[in-house]
Design a binder for these strands. Sequence first.
DNA 1: CATGAATGAGTATTCATTCAT
DNA 2: TATGAATGAATACTCATTCAT
Lengths: 172, 172, 172, 172
Amino acid sequence: MPRADAQRNRARLLEVAEEVFAERGTTVATEEIARAAGVGIGTLFRHFPTKEALLQAVYLARLRRLTDDAATSPSLTDWIRHAVEQSRVKNAFAEALTEAGIDPRGAAAEVHRDLLAAIDTMLRRDQSAGTVRPDLQVPDVIALLAGASRAVEVSPTSQSQVLNVLFAGLRP
Amino acid sequence: MPRADAQRNRARLLEVAEEVFAERGTTVATEEIARAAGVGIGTLFRHFPTKEALLQAVYLARLRRLTDDAATSPSLTDWIRHAVEQSRVKNAFAEALTEAGIDPRGAAAEVHRDLLAAIDTMLRRDQSAGTVRPDLQVPDVIALLAGASRAVEVSPTSQSQVLNVLFAGLRP
Amino acid sequence: MPRADAQRNRARLLEVAEEVFAERGTTVATEEIARAAGVGIGTLFRHFPTKEALLQAVYLARLRRLTDDAATSPSLTDWIRHAVEQSRVKNAFAEALTEAGIDPRGAAAEVHRDLLAAIDTMLRRDQSAGTVRPDLQVPDVIALLAGASRAVEVSPTSQSQVLNVLFAGLRP
Amino acid sequence: MPRADAQRNRARLLEVAEEVFAERGTTVATEEIARAAGVGIGTLFRHFPTKEALLQAVYLARLRRLTDDAATSPSLTDWIRHAVEQSRVKNAFAEALTEAGIDPRGAAAEVHRDLLAAIDTMLRRDQSAGTVRPDLQVPDVIALLAGASRAVEVSPTSQSQVLNVLFAGLRP
DNA sequence: CATGAATGAGTATTCATTCAT
DNA sequence: TATGAATGAATACTCATTCAT
């Protein structure tokens, strides 16, 4: 199983890891993830030489998806709604990385920059259109998104109310 | 050493545990907490037969403080602001609130009930006064508070903006 | 089992570790040593926080015994004979430590110094008495002892001949 | 790639393995050796079905060189001097000699026999000439050579003194 | 034949929990 | 009651070996 299957394995590991980390927290044994992906631990560690590296990769993949969505989303609120709906349970990744002593900005500078840029574009556009409060900045948006995800995680049945309140608060 | 010292030990352990968990995450070794509290590991386990039990106790203590604050707070937003400001480093409160979320396990039931009741009182009062949207329910409030704590944790410099947006969104 | 038994455990671990390392090489699993000593691995690691630390401790204990013997030995050759006879199989400790990147001199400065001093005393005494070649220096003695131990290890039946040759070569 | 390249690979692996084992100990990962030889790990295992087999092959190559030298050396002491000077870092030869010691495993029997015969020839010649003690036997010679290599390895600056003492001891 | 991805047993180390003192 | 040594299951990671391409 050469290059082709190797890449498939890597992709599968990432996918499975995201799910498992989400469902059972970032403290799950790496072996659990390997098992869930149907590969030996050796394979997992060949692709990600460290549990932290795996965590990083999962985290970066998430950021990339967020960035892509931001680039094509019609509005900031649509993007937030989508992101919150997507965020599978326990999105404790940033936290995990922070705990691990890794500054996500440092480790993943480019991806981070892209995400910030994409948010910035959306934000300015909507602010110009007068649909979003003008005093909002990119870091605030990130904080609010993280908060909304957490809120929905705490009380899934409150999802629509949480978004209602947030979107109402975002209006100028 | 009579009961007095035992109780003092228990109190000190709770206090120290909250600090250490907040600063270094809930994965710190229990021995670290014992050391920080100046007692032997055996003493810690005498007071809290399980690490889980210690965590629970810390969370319950937090919930009790939240409840007390709710009982004396002039308004829902004041309470939220106070809670968010209090939330020490890390997602201290958020975690506590997650636990409070829906599934109040056994012994903690009473504390949870009290907190929900206190929030309910505040909420109804403010809704009657017309300062808070009428479609809001107690679980939504908890979710929003957890979210706000998380948001501030992610971007501490966004604290006032986060609260601005949240409070704007809470208005009817 | 307080202090008393703890010290007994430590001593037993050292003793057993020396034997097992000697018999089976320094690559034996630490767990083997714990088992042979009749304690859990946890106990082993409580006493020696690292396999390397255990290796060090065993090595230092050997050096100390060599030093003590040197202090009381009537002559250099008696000391060498005794040391060679004592050296259980595979005395690969120095090697192990060198491989591990530890300079024994650095890590165990004092013990080393004492040994060198003891050898120096013996050597000068015998050289003054005219029983040992005057051009010999302390490092040569150490090298020769290490060599003799190795020689006997390679061919145990040659022990007396190896010593005969060595002692003949040591004479002025 | 015909037989030629395969043999070249095998030779290169042996050469590189000797160097790497000598420099970094026999615990280096086989993959390191493959990498250093510029071949895939699969190729290494095709030529040497086991790490043990590779080690054996390296040792045997050394023994063969020792044998060849013995066949052409003018005297036992010259041979020993040459062997000790050759012994690369670490106890390369010593280990090889340990293996040669007593228990020539299966396939290596012939090489061992040749070496012992070559030493025997030298030894008898020099004993007849009266330049070497008559009570010395072949295993003693092997042991002494192994010991000398080890001694020089322990204290490289003592090389000439070690040889002085040894050669003095070898005289009748 | 060569390659290198996959495998999984093995290893050092940690940590919650127990228990003798 | 407090202490901390002992315990061993659990975990991240390595490495010899196999095998599909």
